[in-house]
Design a protein around this nucleic acid. Structure first.
Length: 838
RNA sequence: GCCCUUGUGGCGGAAUGGCAGACGCGGCGGACUCAAAAUCCGUUGUCGCAAGACAUGUGGGUUCGAGUCCCACCGAGGGCACCA
């Protein structure tokens, strides 16, 4: 075909299109379509007669602090691609959004500026909701929920009571994080490097009575059910959850203690090293330590040590380099296998709340025990054969090995020795096989205002009495009457009007529990409330759950890899046991998007590298920003805003949009009568883009769309021309592909092409498989693995014919330079590799 | 310390064991313009006039053929960190 001189396209456009003088005006396009979509609500889901198969696509809902930012923009753009894709593929997609609206920032704003947390929260929600609408995600706006609405949190309370009835919610006293300056309990996530995140005070421990959920009962199921998520959740997240749950197997061993009637039990993963136990350690802050020390000459020293331990900051405690310290309690335990007297120490390197809070110390095989033994001149008995002596090197022998100095275990390896010792202990009632977990029960009570009130009434006569179901929700009192400044006790406790009630059981005077729930409770089941956020009779309809649950695709940040996802999995299993849901896992597939950075680091006001989403949207338009975020790279990777080009995205969108104004073939023109090359390019782009989207390679899907735009541009300018029906089909395909990521541009193109809204419901065009196969292909001919020639051959060429052709090739012959051919590898029709004699 | 992930042009990134660098950003040259912006066309891994050679962190290995698989090392990022 004739190559037209540069610049000739302008002539074609002037002759061929009445729209050629229009420019891509994203503001006008946004203004044009947003009201139309509000009107036709293309993403309303859940009509009972909908015959389409379902998909539940869920984005982690935002916390309403200020307006949306770049991170939100990326996450929601990615989730939207997936949701919109499945709509185009003919699924009944539920894609809801809501607000995770309880939490500390609202209270902090109240304390700092006197704002009402409720008003502050709802204002922010309104701001974010407006931004979200403009951002044009395919959310079903009839399903919005806010966790701070009493209509929502009453069901938190209902679940809490159900769990309380099942023994899954309970109160106990234990040491919790405490900020002496803020006078409040802190959640683990509020302790940053051992310091309070608000005031930078050193966090200490304090013994307090708190509410817990018995997640440890579900440890095995949380661990074992992960097999179902293998391959559909990021391996990293599964690994982090496994580590967090931290299941270990070993044995409990009972040690007699001189002067004590009851034996003391320890947990060990290495019962096989029992012959190497040379001393015994109890956690300094355990009740057992206090009991053992009581009345001994060591008691004063122990008490002083305990005091120092309590003062020790988190920073010190977390340091592994810290030298081991402890106090000899002047008491002895008896090693059950050989009757040796083991001195008992109290030390802070043993944790009170793991295992039994006491250990047998085997210095030859445990680094910590060895460190302690060397610090306190305690004997080391080697029980695992090794070239090195731990007592000399200071390095414990931790792996497998032949047992020595171990009586009946001598000569055995680790696995056999563990089995033999466990059996030996079991027979004599001295011990038993046992499993332990690092996972602790979930502390859910907070001494804070802006959260779900714990629906328990404390009655002096009846104890902990759940609020009767018909009295739910227990709503929060007005904030303005309360002092929200943290003082170590919940502000709700001071609201006598609210707190003093009659006991539901005995009718006597009683008080409401003053604490509120951890906000992670709110987010542990919100995905089920979306089934019908307005249901006043129950948390959700089990029948609807059967239809929609589990979530097919969950999208959110990896920051929630452990807590939120673990808690949601836990809640789902509890609800399964309650007969409310069939599934045991809430999220079938999980996608963790990366972060949006600026100049290599996270954006923050203090760093001065904040890129404001609203500014970017105003400058480049919604579509260009969404496109930029999705095209930047694989969704899991971080995006450095300094590396990407929203202006380039806008340029591409304008280029695509202009095509729609140039198409001259009428609506409905049969593309099969059009240009074959354009038809092939269109089919390939649709096919490859679909595959890319389904494997999370959204950036590649966009690249395929760009390729089709380039092909179509050339076809209009120098090929088939604007009146070719295949060109129309190509531009329509571009509009549909673009609808996943650039909804405004796509809808406007669709209208310019003469269609009614909405392009979102146009459907992914069917691809004729015949168009994906070319008649001829380029065959690569290699000599000794290096490309030496290319052959245009029929796609169905036989291996023999191809080999003959390749050997006859001039370039090949020249490369061979007379050398004899040893072998020829033929992969018809794409490749021939000719291997010459050396 | 332990575990995981990851190293490809100036940059973001493509690539079922089969043409490395798709697509884009940036750069360069040109067209249009009084001029600029916008737009369009061409070009762009390195060295070399060219033929060609060299190129996916480094070194080995498997293979007809390795960015891709295996081993070792180096660098970057992340997770866990007294859990007995």
């Amino acid at each position: 075909m004739a190559r037209l001189p540069a610049g000739s396209r302008a002539v074609v456009v002037l002759e061929g299109s009445t729209m050629s003088d229009e420019v891509y005006d994203f503001e006008a396009i946004q203004a044009r379509w947003l009201p139309v979509w509000d009107d036709i609500a293309p993403f309303r889901s859940g009509r009972p007669d909908d015959p389409r198969p379902k998909k539940y696509v869920l984005d982690m809902f935002p916390y309403p602090s200020g307006d949306l930012h770049m991170g939100h923009a990326e996450a929601y753009a990615l989730g939207d691609v997936i949701a919109r894709y499945w709509v185009q593929r003919g699924f009944n997609v539920m894609h809801p959004i809501g607000w995770d609206a309880f939490g500390l920032p609202a209270e902090n704003a109240a304390i700092k500026r006197g704002a009402d947390p409720r008003a502050w929260t709802y204002e922010n929600i309104a701001t974010q909701k407006a931004s979200m609408r403009r951002y044009a995600c395919s959310f079903d706006w009839d399903r919005v929920l806010n966790t701070c609405d009493p209509e929502y949190y009453r069901w938190n309370q209902w679940f809490f009571i159900e769990m309380f009835k099942r023994g899954l919610a309970y109160r106990k006293a234990s040491a919790v994080n405490w900020c002496p300056s803020c006078q409040t309990v802190l959640a683990n996530e509020q302790v940053v490097q051992g310091l309070c995140e608000r005031c930078d005070s050193v966090v200490t421990k304090k013994k307090l009575t708190q509410w817990y959920l018995r997640i440890t009962d579900y440890a095995d199921r949380l661990l074992d059910d992960m097999a179902q998520l293998e391959g559909t959740w990021p391996e990293k997240v599964l690994l982090m959850q496994r580590n967090w749950i931290g299941r270990s197997t070993g044995a409990e061993v009972h040690f007699a203690v001189e002067g004590r009637t009851e034996p003391v039990t320890v947990y060990t993963t290495r019962p096989d090293t029992l012959f190497g136990a040379t001393f015994f350690v109890v956690a300094a802050d355990s009740e057992l330590a206090a009991e053992l020390a009581a009345g001994t000459p060591a008691e004063p020293e122990f008490l002083a040590y305990l005091e120092r331990t309590k003062q020790a900051s988190e920073i010190e405690r977390l340091s592994t380099e810290r030298p081991k310290t402890g106090v000899f309690l002047e008491r002895y335990a008896i090693n059950p296998v050989n009757g040796e007297r083991l001195p008992i120490y109290a030390a802070d390197y043993v944790l009170a709340d793991y295992g039994t809070g006491a250990i047998m110390a085997v210095p030859c095989g445990d680094q910590r025990d060895l460190d302690f033994a060397r610090a306190y001149n305690l004997p080391v008995v080697n029980v695992i054969e090794s070239d090195t002596d731990p007592n000399e090197t200071g390095v414990a022998v931790t792996g497998d090995g032949r047992h020595i100095n171990s009586g009946f275990l001598d000569g055995l390896g680790k696995a056999e020795a563990i089995a033999a010792m466990t059996a030996w202990l079991d027979e004599r009632g001295l011990g038993t096989a046992s499993t332990n977990y690092r996972l602790r029960d979930w502390l859910i009570s907070r001494q804070r205002f802006w959260g779900t009130p714990i629906p328990i009434i404390h009655c002096e006569r009846c104890g902990e009495v759940p609020v009767p179901a018909e009295q739910l929700p227990v709503t929060l009192p007005e904030a303005r009457d309360l002092d929200l400044t943290p003082k170590g006790a919940s502000p709700l406790g001071a609201a006598d009007d609210w707190a003093i009630v009659t006991c539901p059981t005995c009718g006597g005077s009683a008080r409401r529990d003053p604490d509120t729930m951890d906000t992670f409770v709110d987010s542990s089941w919100y995905f089920l409330r979306f089934l019908d956020p307005s249901d006043e009779t129950r948390a959700f309809d089990p029948e609807a759950a059967r239809q929609w649950f589990p979530v097919d695709q969950y999208v959110g940040g990896v920051t929630h890899a452990i807590l939120h996802l673990l808690y949601s999995r836990f809640f789902t299993k509890v609800m399964h046991d309650m007969g409310l849901v069939e599934a045991v896992e809430p999220f079938t597939r999980l996608l963790n998007q990366g972060m949006v950075l600026m100049d290599g680091s996270a954006m923050s006001k203090s760093r001065g590298n904040l890129v404001r989403l609203s500014d970017e949207l105003a400058t480049h338009g919604v579509d260009a920003i969404r496109l930029t975020l999705v095209f930047a790279g694989p969704p899991e990777d971080d995006i450095d805003w300094a590396d990407v080009s929203p202006a380039g995205s806008k340029k591409f969108l304008a280029r695509a949009w202009r095509l729609a104004g140039e198409v001259q073939a009428p609506v409905g023109a049969d593309p099969r009568t059009g240009d074959l090359a354009v038809r092939r390019a269109t089919a390939r782009a649709l096919h490859e883009a679909a595959q890319a989207v389904e494997s999370y390679r959204f950036n590649v899907a966009i690249a395929k769309t760009m390729e089709l735009v380039n092909v179509t541009r050339k076809a209009i300018d120098t090929g088939a021309g604007p009146a070719d029906p295949a060109v129309r089909a190509a531009v329509e395909a571009i509009a549909i592909m673009l609808s996943l990521v650039a909804p405004y541009t796509a809808e406007d193109m669709w209208a310019r092409l003469g269609h009614e809204p909405s392009v979102f419901l146009a459907g992914w065009p069917a691809v004729d498989p015949a168009l994906l196969v070319d008649d001829t292909v380029t065959c690569i001919v290699q000599v000794a693995g290096k490309v030496r020639g290319r052959l245009e051959v029929p796609a169905d060429i036989t291996a023999d014919a191809l080999q003959e052709l390749a050997l006859a090739d001039v370039d090949v012959q020249r490369s061979l330079a007379g050398r004899a051919v040893r072998t020829v590898v033929v992969r018809a029709p794409k490749l021939v590799n000719i291997v010459p004699e050396a």
